[in-house]
């Protein structure tokens, strides 16, 4: 039985068209012209209890919009969403008591008060029995190393410390699903590691289902065995991260240091990626045979000093995925979505 089912989900935003020129502001107020922009279009997937799923895509792809529909903040324009057996927007409050939500960019803690005050309020808002609250609070405190932080005003915490507290709070009522919208944004490596470790533990030991959006693909690699990739509102990949790598990350990088600059080298099975004279980097088919063939053919004509290999990074895989679909690159995406919008007058 799936914990989340999404079928043919779509969301259009309607925006009032601003009119420029003379009396533009006044005319904008009285005009009925609006513009429809499709943020999410015909997305379907389902998630089983206990899964950890990374939801990724370039800026403006529709990630946050989907999360907002799953958490009941937004009402879908088309299609259906079911979370824990109910439609989230129709039963927003019932849904809210069974899920946890962490926004990387929006704090849910009381800024000027010690963290523990926000926790205590959370206990009352979610009506958590005292023993269960204490047990969960202590466990999160231990796993996330919160300790003295709970007594500090939130404004005195570093971003990493604050995010750890946000995470702990979202889990106090033991939600069945934890939604994380860019939980590691702006954090240093140590803070990221700590949060990733914690999320892995929560997912494995408590069986909490995790859905997370991120731009840091290391989050995904360390937490989520499955990824859903969307671009321009549509789903472009749903499956194991490993098989995506196998499908698209079929090349590896070979960097060769020559004894002397050999000049230009052309080999049919390798593509030159960078040329720094004595050091050249090639992209080569991932199989052992082709790697060896390329190496021996180069070594036979030029003396080689050192060789190193690099496996495809998840970033490269995702880049290949976006590029392979002929979709827009992230930077121009904003423009694209606008040109795609239909102007309707009502």
């Amino acid at each position: 039985m799936s914990i989340i089912t999404v079928s043919h989900l779509g969301k259009d935003y309607r925006q009032i068209r601003r009119i420029d020129g003379r009396f533009g502001a006044v005319r904008t107020l009285f005009t009925r012209q609006s513009m429809t922009r499709t943020a999410v279009d015909d997305i379907s997937f389902s998630i089983e209890p206990g899964e950890a799923v990374g939801y990724i895509g370039p800026n403006g792809a529709g990630k946050s919009t989907t999360i907002k529909m799953l958490t009941g903040i937004l009402v879908p324009t088309r299609g259906a969403v079911e979370v824990l057996g109910v439609e989230p927007h129709r039963h927003r409050r019932r849904n809210a008591s069974r899920i946890g939500v962490v926004f990387g960019q929006r704090s849910q803690l009381w800024w000027d008060l010690p963290v523990i005050e926000s926790f205590e309020l959370h206990r009352h808002v979610y009506d958590i029995p005292p023993e269960r609250y204490r047990a969960m609070r202590d466990r999160c405190t231990e796993l996330l190393g919160l300790g003295d932080l709970l007594q500090s005003p939130v404004r005195q915490l570093s971003l990493g410390q604050r995010m750890r507290c946000e995470l702990a709070m979202a889990l106090l009522h033991q939600p069945e699903i934890l939604f994380l919208d860019e939980p590691t944004i702006g954090l240093d490596i140590e803070a990221k590691d700590r949060i990733r470790d914690f999320l892995r533990t929560v997912n494995r030991e408590q069986g909490t289902t995790i859905i997370l959006t991120t731009h840091d693909l290391a989050d995904i690699e360390e937490i989520c065995p499955r990824i859903i990739v969307i671009n321009r509102g549509g789903l472009i990949y749903d499956g194991a991260i490993q098989s995506l790598k196998a499908q698209l990350g079929s090349q590896r990088q070979v960097t060769i240091d020559f004894e002397d600059d050999p000049g230009p080298i052309t080999i049919s099975q390798a593509t030159l990626l960078s040329d720094q004279g004595r050091r050249k980097t090639f992209a080569v088919e991932r199989s052992v045979e082709s790697t060896l063939a390329v190496l021996s053919s180069i070594a036979s004509s030029h003396p080689v000093q050192d060789v190193s290999f690099a496996e495809p990074a998840i970033e490269d895989v995702i880049r290949t995925l976006y590029a392979g679909l002929g979709k827009a690159v992230p930077e121009s995406d904003e423009l694209d979505r606008w040109s795609r919008g239909r102007v309707v007058t009502q």
């Binding site: 009941g72 903040i73 927003r92 409050r93 019932r94 809210a96 926004f103 929006r106």
Partner: peptide
């Protein structure tokens, strides 16, 4: 700023 959303994910009015 989207901070209204933090209120909408709570099980209260």
């Amino acid at each position: 700023r989207g901070t209204l959303e933090t209120v909408l994910v709570k099980p209260t009015d």
